[in-house]
């Protein structure tokens, strides 16, 4: 893990700030002078995990690059809710690409900056590309793979809310099995999304052998900020996949967004790790092991698993996925901390 969790001091580094910690051990978000890259007045739903994750990540990147940053944004909620022309919530240099070419636009900007630097201009400006899971795992996948393969100097951040939320909650290749979406209805013998398909983009990114790949959630801010900071210290292609619950698309309470992200990690469904040059270098251990039911029950997209005749068979398959993650990434710690 790129940061050393501080366990004591009442809440340690579990909370955003902590008056008992040294200022350098507090998060960027605790700082009264954080950038607030994504400002108030945006039109994201109540409790939007994507809005939160984007501010967390971009503020951390601004802090890590001394504000020398340009962001490229794919079409999707993050772009639509933040920038209905002529208004914008972004307080950083920001450009909207198309839905599918964000990685390519970012590559172009990085190339232009390189030329500028050669011609004696500012050589410190860094580039981030960001988009939703649909824009990343589906339509933008070709451009992204090319960016990885060329090792372009871009950090690509995917905000994974497990579906095409902006257009009304359709399935993407990041939608989990059994989840109900507008295109995977909760009907028939195998209700909701099918098992066994979809793409694990962090693993695919690692397969490209790029310098840095990491996953994070909006439930562990210190970890997320440390990963963004680490990524900005590296040149070349980097990828961070951030898990961002969506109250609208998941049918969850707006105040459960962070809780759901925490549960995804604690159940083992979403492994939180980082990798360099294709090899896993650190994993976030589970602190309080929990069954997947605790996570699924809070979301109406899984409600069909818990009706009058609970689908224990389907829940067991989801649990088996979590158990496999736990084994594969060694998510359990030896002694409880």
């Amino acid at each position: 893990m790129s940061y050393q969790p501080i366990k004591f001091y009442q809440t340690g580094t579990f909370t955003v700030g902590n008056r008992l910690l040294e200022p350098e051990d507090r998060s960027v978000q605790a700082n009264m002078r954080r950038t607030n890259s994504l400002n108030s007045g945006h039109r994201a739903c109540q409790g939007c995990g994507e809005a939160l994750g984007a501010r967390y990540a971009i503020d951390a990147a601004m802090s890590a690059t001394d504000n020398q940053l340009i962001a490229v944004n794919a079409t999707g909620c993050l772009e639509v809710f933040s920038t209905p022309y002529p208004e914008t919530s972004w307080q950083i240099p920001w450009i909207h690409s198309l839905f599918g070419n964000t990685a390519a636009v970012a590559t172009g900007i990085a190339a232009a900056l390189k030329i500028k630097a050669i011609k004696g201009g500012n050589d410190r400006v860094r580039v981030i590309a960001q988009g939703g899971d649909g824009g990343t795992t589906d339509i933008g996948f070709g451009c992204l793979s090319g960016m990885f393969e060329r090792n372009d100097d871009v950090l690509y951040i995917c905000y994974d809310n497990e579906g095409y939320m902006n257009t009304g909650v359709q399935r993407s290749s990041a939608t989990p099995p059994a989840a109900r979406t507008a295109t995977t209805m909760a009907v028939g013998e195998q209700p909701g999304n099918v098992f066994g398909q979809g793409k694990n983009l962090p693993l695919i990114a690692m397969a490209h052998g790029i310098p840095y790949v990491a996953t994070a959630t909006v439930a562990d801010l210190h970890d997320l900020e440390a990963k963004v900071t680490r990524a900005m210290q590296i040149h070349g292609a980097r990828y961070i996949h951030i898990f961002v619950p969506c109250p609208l698309g998941w049918g969850s309470a707006s105040n459960d967004t962070i809780r759901l992200a925490r549960l995804a990690k604690e159940t083992g469904l979403f492994p939180v790790f980082e990798a360099e040059h294709g090899e896993v270098t650190a994993v976030s251990k589970i602190r309080r092991p929990l069954p997947v039911d605790d996570y699924l029950k809070l979301q109406r997209r899984f409600a069909h698993l818990f009706g009058a005749r609970p689908r224990t068979d389907v829940i067991a398959r989801i649990q088996a996925q979590a158990d496999r993650n736990i084994r594969k990434y060694q998510l359990l710690q030896e002694a409880p901390q």
Partner: peptide, 9 residues
């Protein structure tokens, strides 16, 4: 603890 300040989307 700054949690409210941090978690507000």
């Amino acid at each position: 603890c700054d949690n409210c300040y941090g978690v507000c989307p």
